[in-house]
Design a protein around this nucleic acid. Structure first.
Ligand SMILES: [Mn+2]
Ligand SMILES: [Mn+2]
Ligand SMILES: [Zn+2]
Ligand SMILES: [Zn+2]
Lengths: 144, 144
DNA sequence: TTCTTTTTGCAAACGATTTGCATTTGCATT
DNA sequence: AATGCAAATGCAAATCGTTTGCAAAAAGAA
C-alpha cells in the first residue's frame, strides 16, 4: 500500500545505452511520464505534449510508448478493456484498484498476494513472468 | 484450482424470462458457449457458428455476446489487451493463468487470494464489484 | 394466419492503433 | 562548422476489433 515517491531515473541515459536517439518529442514525452502521478492514455499524453510543442504527432506518441514498453521503462494497462494507459516502470511493483464510479485509480501492494500467486503458478508447473490484478470497486457508504 | 464441470444451465429459459426472443443464431451461439472448455473470441465463435448455419453474421455474434454479458450469462476477458474472449458464467469463480508460449489458459481458484483482495479493498474504503487476476507464465523446465 | 415487435444480415462507420513514405533530424564523422 | 547517413518524424492512409443504421426476415402473441 505504497504511493511510489519515485526519484526520477535517468531515462535519457537508458535510451542512449540502448542505441536510441534522444529527440525533442521523446524528451517531452518522457518528461510528461516522469512528472505525473496518474495513468494517462496516449491521447492524454498527446494533448499534454502539444501544449509544450504543437508539432508533435499522435503517431510519435504511440511509437514512443511502444519503444519505452519494449525497453521496460513503462507499463501498459488496459483497465476495463479501454484504451491503453501508461505509467513509468520505476518504483516498486503495485496493483490497481479502480473506482468504477469516478474512474480513480488507487495503487496498492500486497506481499501476501504476490506470494500466493507464485505458489499457485509453481504448483501448476509454471513461473510467472508478469501478472495483472485489478480490483473494480465502489466506495463504501457507511449509512446504506 | 478447479475445472468447472458445469452442468448446463437452461439459458433459453433465462432468456425468455428476460423477455428476449429465442432465435436460431442465439441457440447456436449458446450451444457453442456451453459446450466448450476454452475461452474463444468473437471470431472463433463466429467460425464455429457458420459451420452449423452459414447464414449467421459476425455482428450477430457481437450483439449476442453483449446481450449475454448484460444478462450476466457470460464473462468477458481481454488477455494481453487482445480481443475480447468469452466463457459462460455458470460454475464457480476462477482466475486465469496464461501460458505466454502456447497461449493456453489454465483456470485456478484461491480462496486466500480472494479474501486478501476483499481486505485490501475494505481497508481503502471500497467494496469489490468484480476483479481480474491474470498470471502470465512460462512453463518451468526442470533442467535449466 | 395476421399483426406487431424484435432480431437479423449487410455494409458502412467507428475508435484505437499501426504503417508507408517522403522529409527532417540526431549525431558521428570529417 | 559543414557533411553524410541512419534513425525518427509527421502526415495520411490502412488496419483491427467492434458497433451501428437500415431494410428485410423471423418470433411469438393474438
Ligand atoms: Mn501484483
Ligand atoms: Mn479471483
Ligand atoms: Zn500504477
Ligand atoms: Zn475461465
Amino acid at each position: 500500500m505504497k504511493h511510489a515517491m519515485n526519484q526520477k531515473p535517468d531515462y535519457e541515459k537508458e535510451l542512449r545505452k540502448a542505441g536510441v536517439r534522444i529527440t525533442r518529442p521523446r524528451r517531452i514525452i518522457l518528461d510528461i511520464l516522469t512528472s505525473t502521478e496518474d495513468h494517462p492514455d496516449a491521447m492524454k499524453i498527446f494533448h499534454r505534449a502539444i501544449e509544450i510543442d504543437d508539432s508533435i504527432s499522435l503517431s510519435t506518441v504511440y511509437r514512443t510508448m511502444n519503444l519505452l514498453e519494449e525497453m521496460g521503462a513503462i507499463h501498459r494497462h488496459a483497465f476495463n478493456g479501454g484504451p491503453s494507459r501508461f505509467e513509468q516502470a520505476h518504483g516498486e511493483h503495485h496493483d490497481h484498484l479502480i473506482d468504477i464510479e469516478t474512474g480513480d485509480v488507487i495503487e496498492f501492494q500486497s506481499d501476501k498476494i504476490e506470494k500466493l500467486q507464485e505458489e499457485i503458478a509453481r504448483s501448476l508447473g509454471y513461473e510467472i513472468t508478469h501478472h495483472r490484478l485489478e480490483l473494480y470497486c465502489r466506495k463504501i457508504t457507511p449509512g446504506e
